[in-house]
Design a protein around this nucleic acid. Sequence first.
DNA 1: CCCCAGGCTTTTC
DNA 2: GAAAAGCATGGG
Length: 317
Amino acid sequence: MNSLILKYHYKINSKICLNIRDTLFSGQTFLWNIHNYGKTFYSSIIQSYPVLIKGISEHEFEIYSTTKCIDGVPLEDFISHYFTLDIDTKKVFPKDFPERYPEIWQLLMPYFSLRVMRQDSFETMISFMCAQGIGMHLIRKQVAMLVQTYGEKRCVSFLGNEIVLHSFPSPERLAAADPALLSSCTNNNRIRARNIILAAQRVAEGRVDLEALGDPQIPLSELRSILCQNGGIGYKIADCVALFGLGRFDAFPIDTHVKQYLGKWFNSSTALRSLSPATYLALDAEARTFLNPDLAGYAGHLLFHCWRREVKRLRTF
DNA sequence: CCCCAGGCTTTTC
DNA sequence: GAAAAGCATGGG
């Protein structure tokens, strides 16, 4: 059993919270709310390495890890990249945004510490495939079951406590999964289970090269159509994979909540229509007229959580 | 009992 | 082509 021994400090220019969990729906990623700083640890698996995080002040957190390197990259650099500490979240919005939308800007204040992460592409793809027409509770449950059933068990000890974590299953592991067993992890949805197996097989066999899709030169529309060739992936999920799993902060996923705030906050009449593919593309184009096109998705994610919590009063983190 | 929940696919008009 | 109906389940 490994012990978590290393400790690194990271300073962030933020006040309220560093929210990660919602981007992946699962307890395997961690959630750190600054309101709990000093009291709460969150354990997680990052690229199959167990990691612990603790808030120590309004602007700092600590990372505990068993390794000094993740995927050959020094831990400090990896964490900085993973949590997009290179990004000033206030600057993901256009310069004139605060004066154009002062009420929204005011509501957004507590959300500039929320970060879109550069997560693993395969993990992101499979996780979001579990997220269609279903509630957050069940989405998290599905991913947790996938991880516990097919992931590798990683036990670590920390301050005398044993922590059991599971890495996200490899493409090969899911590619070889029994459909019946897998569907018990996917809300008994056999179609979803089948889609996950097929997607995992494509990745495992190299027919879908997620690494190559990480090339920032690929136009967003092309990236989206490639991802949509997988069953179970439409525009929304494709954009989520691009945004959270491929570092494409220009990708702007539109779901029911985004559609809602586009209508209410930005007075979009298009948002009143049902979310058909045509409506989706129209809203996507509209959003880029008042958001920075290169960072529309990053900004959209802050707006998304702000809308859910401040307006809809949904507490998912 | 009905409706919705961070949609996608198939069928029907 | 664009709309409407299934998918599965838990919770309000």
